[in-house]
Each structure stands twice: as structure tokens, then as C-alpha cells.
Simulated assay, not measured.
Amino acid sequence: MQETAFDLTGRDLLTLLDYSPEEVAYLLEQAKQLKVDHKSGISDKRLAGKSLGMIFENASTRTRVSFEVGMTQLGGHSLFLSSRDLQIGRGEPIKDTANVLSRYVDAIMIRTNSHEVVSEFATHATVPVINALTDSYHPCQALADGLTILEHKGTFKGVKLVYIGDGNNVAHSLLALGAKTGMDVTIASPEGHEVDSEIYNKAKKAAEKTGAKLEQCQDPQLAVVGADVIYTDVWTSMGFESEQAERLSAFAAFQVNEELLKNAKPDYIFLHCLPAHRGEEVSTDIIDGIHSAVYDQAENRLHVQKSVLVATMSNS
């Protein structure tokens, strides 16, 4: 592996907004090389003897499997910890859990609801803390999205990504990805379901360095004009199940289907972070069609997370 000028050892990954454009580019380039090496049968054991503590407060398929497999491929060990396994569920302060776990493991990965929980872990932990999903950000997913776009489009410059749907953690992290890579990002959401204004403004400020054009609108048909990448997510995320009926009504005109995508570029790719609800946010013919790259995208979770693990843990 080529040496890098970026020393990310010991760094937390809470949001891509905390990383420079050059650091994000490095993580993606390293992920690309790790993928090539893996498929070529080249063994990489840089995390031999290292342990990753994985805290899950909600269910996951791709996150758990990709982190566990990634650590195994890198020669390390992963430890799954559900909320039932931790004293946090019984009222132990996060400060105590973070300090104790830091004495046992070399990094902590957390998938939880509250972003404040991850931030507090990072404040008190003495090892890297990786955000594997919160209600505000999903940085590892955005890195996988970025790697997939690079594989299919070859560049971020001049690429227009349009996200159609709820202004959630995925939308926030796509804005951060665009801001750090120079890729234009448009978020199309119904009224009342827009992205968080504070996060949007932070991303807009970060985009000044790369020239990325970040926009919001409430008209999906207008948003998709000239789009290179179309992205959507479920309309009802975990924790919002009680709002499902209201959301089905509010998002009815935001389904990604063949009619909506007539004005996208002919060679657009379709992305979805999965799991998907076919027939709701996306029609079956689109997600299972020739433009879909959702399985490439899911696979790339493994490679970008290995890149993050190597970058933050290899010399810790």
C-alpha cells in the first residue's frame, strides 16, 4: 500500500464534515485499493492483534456483517455488544463505559439513535470512535456511496447526485460527501421532511472549499433533471414507525419510478442504502433494473469500513 501524508491514527469518525476533502479522498482511494487487493487474493493483516468493540442499540445486517468481516480480513477481532450486554442500559454513565472499553479494545464502533451518545463516547474514550449510524449522520454509508459513484462515474467533478425522500441521516451525510468531494447534491423532500437546517448550513459552508453545489427543493421532477446519480431511502426510518400512515401520504409523489426518471441522464445510476421497500420509495423495475448499483454499493460498505479501520487503528 502506498504511503500517505495523512496520519489519521486515533481519529474519531463521527461525520465526514470533521474531515478535510483530502482526508476523505484518501479514505476512498485506500478503500479502492483494499478492494482490489482483496479480490486479487492479497492478504492484509495490518490489524493483527487489534480488537474492535461494536455497540448496537438497533438491528443491522450490512453494518454488523461488514465490520465483522472487515476486521477478520485485516487480521483483527470484533466483539458484538448489544444494549442488553452493556451496563448503559442499566444506567451506567457513558463516561464510565467509554473509559472502561478503551482499556479493552483498540476502537469502538457505535450504531445508535442519538448522535449525542456517539459524541459523548468520543469525548471520553481514549481510542477511536466510529459512527456506524445515528439519527443525524451515517458517514460510513456515505463513503460507500462515494466509492460506488467513483467506480461508475470515474469522478465527482461535474456529477450531480439527487436524493429523493426523507431529509434523514443519509441525506445529511450525502450533503457532507458532496461538500468534501466537490460533487453537486440536490435533496428533494416534501414540506416538513427537509434536512436539518443546521447540518445543511454546515455542509454549505464546507462546500465553499470544493465548489460543490448543494441545494434543497420540494419538486422531485425538477430535481432529477440532468441527474447522474439517483438516490432514495425508506420513507419511514427506525423510530418513526408511528408516523408511517402520515409519511406514506406525504411522500406519495416522491416515489422513484420510470416516469420520474425520464429527465435524468440516460446513463444515471440508482443507489439505495437498503433495506428497501419495493413499491414504496422505489418501484421494482428501477431497483432491480439495469441502472441499479445497490449491490455494488452494499459490498462497498466492507471496503470503506476496512479503510476507516486501517486508517484509525493500524498504528494505535
Rank of each mutant, 00 (worst) to 15 (best):
A276S: 15
P275Q: 00
A276W: 13
I269Y: 04
R278Y: 13
K265P: 03
Y268V: 10
A264W: 07
H277I: 00
H277T: 01
N257R: 10
Y268D: 07
F270T: 03
P275Y: 11
I269N: 02
A276Q: 14
P275V: 09
E258I: 01
L248Q: 01
H277D: 06
F270V: 11
I269M: 06
A250H: 07
K265D: 02
A252K: 05
Q255A: 04
V256G: 07
D267V: 06
C273F: 04
P266Y: 03
S249T: 15
L261Q: 13
R278G: 09
L248F: 03
F254C: 10
H277K: 11
S249K: 15
H272Y: 12
K265N: 04
F251W: 15
E259C: 05
A250T: 14
L261K: 09
H277S: 05
D267M: 03
Y268K: 09
L260E: 02
A264D: 05
A252V: 02
N263V: 03
A250C: 14
V256F: 12
F270H: 11
L271G: 11
N257I: 06
E259I: 05
R278E: 11
D267H: 08
I269K: 04
D267W: 06
A250S: 15
A276M: 12
A264C: 12
E258P: 02
P266T: 01
P275E: 01
Q255H: 01
S249D: 13
R278T: 04
K265L: 06
A264I: 10
A253G: 11
P275C: 04
A276V: 14
N257K: 06
L261P: 07
S249P: 00
V256D: 02
P266G: 05
V256I: 13
A264Q: 03
A264K: 09
A264E: 08
P275T: 12
P275D: 02
K265I: 02
K262H: 00
Q255L: 00
E258D: 14
S249H: 05
Q255E: 14
A264S: 14
H277R: 13
V256M: 11
E258N: 14
F270N: 04
R278Q: 13
N263A: 14
I269S: 04
L271W: 06
A276I: 10
S249N: 12
L248M: 14
H277Y: 15
A276L: 12
F254Q: 12
L260F: 00
L260T: 00
R278H: 08
E258M: 03
H272R: 09
K265H: 03
P266L: 00
Y268S: 09
H272E: 13
V256N: 09
K265S: 09
L261E: 10
A264M: 07
K265G: 10
L248W: 02
K265T: 05
A264Y: 08
A250K: 10
